[in-house]
Measured scan of single mutants.
Amino acid sequence: HYVEVNGKKIQATSAEEAEKIAKKFAKIYNATVLDLGNYYKVT
């Protein structure tokens, strides 16, 4: 599981952790979290 933010991949140990990381970055960048199955993308 990982999160992609601005083209950078951030490794996460679980889907739950990946979701938390994605939501945190989405809040910082006022962005949207896309759940793409095996990873989250912040756009």
Rank of each mutant, 00 (worst) to 15 (best):
T13R: 14
K24R: 14
N38M: 10
N6T: 03
G7I: 02
K8E: 09
D35T: 07
K41E: 10
A12H: 02
Y40S: 04
I21K: 02
A18D: 00
K9L: 12
S14R: 02
E16V: 10
A26N: 03
E4M: 12
Q11E: 10
E19K: 14
Q11A: 12
V33F: 07
T32C: 14
K23P: 01
Q11S: 12
S14C: 07
Y2E: 02
I28Q: 10
V3Q: 00
E19M: 15
L34P: 00
L34G: 02
T32K: 09
K23E: 10
I10H: 06
N38Y: 13
A18Y: 03
Y40K: 05
A31D: 05
D35H: 15
A12N: 02
I10E: 00
Y2R: 01
Y39K: 03
A15M: 15
K24S: 11
K27D: 11
Q11G: 09
K20Q: 11
Y39T: 06
K24V: 12
N6K: 07
K24A: 13
K9I: 15
G7A: 02
K27Y: 12
I28W: 14
F25S: 02
K24I: 14
G7P: 00
D35S: 06
Y40G: 04
G7L: 03
T32W: 08
Y39I: 08
H1D: 02
N30P: 02
G37L: 06
G7F: 04
I28L: 14
A26I: 05
K9N: 07
A26Q: 08
K23N: 12
E19V: 08
Q11L: 13
Y29N: 05
K8H: 14
K23S: 09
L36C: 15
I28G: 04
V42K: 02
E17I: 07
E4C: 15
G7D: 04
T43E: 13
T13S: 14
E17N: 09
N30A: 08
V5P: 00
Y2T: 04
V42C: 07
Y40M: 06
E16G: 08
K41R: 09
L36H: 07
L36K: 08
D35N: 14
I10W: 08
I10F: 09
S14Q: 02
I28P: 01
I28T: 06
A12R: 02
A15L: 14
I10C: 13
S14G: 05
T13L: 09
K41Y: 11
Y29P: 04
G37P: 02
E4Q: 06
K23A: 10
H1F: 15
Y2M: 04
G37C: 09
T43P: 03
V42H: 03
G37M: 05
K24D: 11
A31K: 04
Y40Q: 04
H1T: 08
K20C: 15
Y39W: 11
A31F: 08
A12W: 02
I21R: 00
T43D: 10
V3R: 00
D35E: 10
E16S: 11
V3H: 01
E19D: 06
K27E: 13
N30T: 04
G7R: 03
E19I: 12
F25A: 04
V42Q: 04
N38G: 15
N38I: 09
F25E: 02
A22L: 04
K20I: 10
T32S: 10
Q11M: 15
K27V: 10
A15S: 10
K27Q: 13
A31G: 15
N30H: 15
I10D: 02
Q11K: 13
A26W: 05
T32G: 06
N30Q: 09
I28S: 06
D35M: 11
I28H: 12
Y39A: 05
